[in-house]
Write a protein that binds this DNA or RNA. Structure first.
Lengths: 105, 105
DNA sequence: ATTTGACTTGTCAAAGTTTGACAAATTTAT
DNA sequence: ATAAATTTGTCAAACTTTGACAAGTCAAAT
């Protein structure tokens, strides 16, 4: 794993977009999205829909697998943040996830 | 934190219920729920709704705060399990959650 | 072997949530 | 001052989850 990204996923998209000198409208078109909604995504007011991840990887020539990892870690981070989860509880959650894995094998 | 619970939240409810010798119908009534739905909850086919947590704590005389911790760690565990998250990605998620905390202060 | 009680499963409408689209407002750059 | 870029508000459509009830299995008791 090579991820060093500290931003939210929305901030990351904004970074990629501005680096490439694209406007919201231009990128939105490539992602089959309304520019207003892309704005909300970049500002963390809406979530990026997973179904557009592959398209996003294409546009910015990113490794789809790594981008997916960024995506899911961001979604999890959002949950952790919203639930106001201590590190202690996170550890318990991790153990419980492991337990679920043993169940469904 | 004293949690040592390794079960899913549904399994935990079943444990509490059977220990107390209650039927699905009896407990469901106390939680203002249909016994069929409680059955699904205990079997992991539906989620327990957060709005009934306090009631659940009362019925079994549990510490509401601790029960809430069990609840959120279970929900997070479910996510982690469903997303097929490696420990590595979890660590990244934790850092990203921390980043979100710095943002909203 | 039938009845009874406990539990499980399927279905579906209602309630709740998220998304897409468009209009309008604000900000930024020229 | 104008135009382009971005942000915000709103609302219906799409999607997801929940509650309720009917019908099912299963085991124990009679």
């Amino acid at each position: 794993m090579t991820s060093q990204m500290k931003e939210t996923f929305g901030e990351y998209i904004r970074l990629l977009r501005t680096e490439k000198g694209l406007t919201l409208t231009q990128l939105a078109a490539q992602l089959d999205l309304d520019s207003a909604n892309l704005s909300k995504i970049e500002n963390g007011k809406r979530d990026f829909d997973e179904k557009r991840l592959d398209r996003l990887a294409m546009v910015f020539e990113l490794n789809p697998k790594e981008l997916h990892n960024e995506y899911i870690s961001d979604r999890l981070a959002k949950q952790i943040y919203e639930m106001n989860c201590s590190t202690e509880i996170l550890k318990v959650a991790e153990e419980k996830a492991e337990y679920r894995r043993t169940l469904k094998k």
